[in-house]
Amino acid sequence: MSRRARALMLLAPLLLFLGLAYIVPFLGVIRWSVTLPQPGLGQYRAALTDPLVQSVFLRTLRVCVAVTAASVLAGYVIALLWVRGGPVQKLLVELCILIPFWISVLTRAFGWLALLSNRGIINDWLQWAGILHEPLAMVRNEFGVIVGMTHFLIPFAVFPLASSMRNLDERVLMAARGMGASRARIFWRVLVPMTLPGILGAALVVFVFALGFFVTPAILGGGRSVMAAELIYLRIFQSPDWGLGAAISVIMMVAVGGMLALLLRQARPGGGR
């Protein structure tokens, strides 16, 4: 048996599982999108022209861009501390990244609710201190969604960033220092350009994850900041509008697929550098 055939056989259970549990159902979703309630591309036209669906898409895009920017920015600082900091900083970063990573997304969303809601800890404290007289609305809006999602997604940005920083030749930074370059110049002219593949990778991972977020926006958005995944849920489970829900799903899938293709090109050796 050739190596190729053996490899294929070892992969077969996984491929079979993916096929049955994922591809076949998804083909069903595609069928709904072009057959319900009547055959044709009407649901796609509706998904792309309906002002409500458009506003949800726009909000999804806006939130995802903000979450990506915030996660990559915070992730860069954390990764830098993790890779180049002292032993105490390293341990602290590991604890702060890994412990929340093990806690369920639901628990974390409720945690943020307890912190940010109108009668939550932060508002209580700000009012008690006399800084605010009215509670500040930090949940049931996009702000709360962005905070919750960013908190969840930071580790996904830290890992690719830390790995690109670890692969960096320390001597290149020393060389820059030896020529008299300031810390700011080394950061902007050497470190950031050299870790650019890591930055792009981290941004894509976070963005793709963020597009499909459901639990965090549902809880911290409180039904007012509906994002794409929640809209699909509403179309399929709350209103019997399966065709539109399916069409939105397919559009999201194509967007995610496109970005994953970009990510894979980026990750291929020599692709990004």
Binding site: R171, V172, A175, G178, P193, M194
Partner: peptide
């Protein structure tokens, strides 16, 4: 500190800026 001395230095492995 090294950045104030600013001696010329050639490293093992050259340490050129790859970008």
């Amino acid at each position: 500190p090294a950045e104030e001395r600013a001696f010329g230095m050639v490293f093992q492995g050259y340490a050129l800026f790859p970008h």
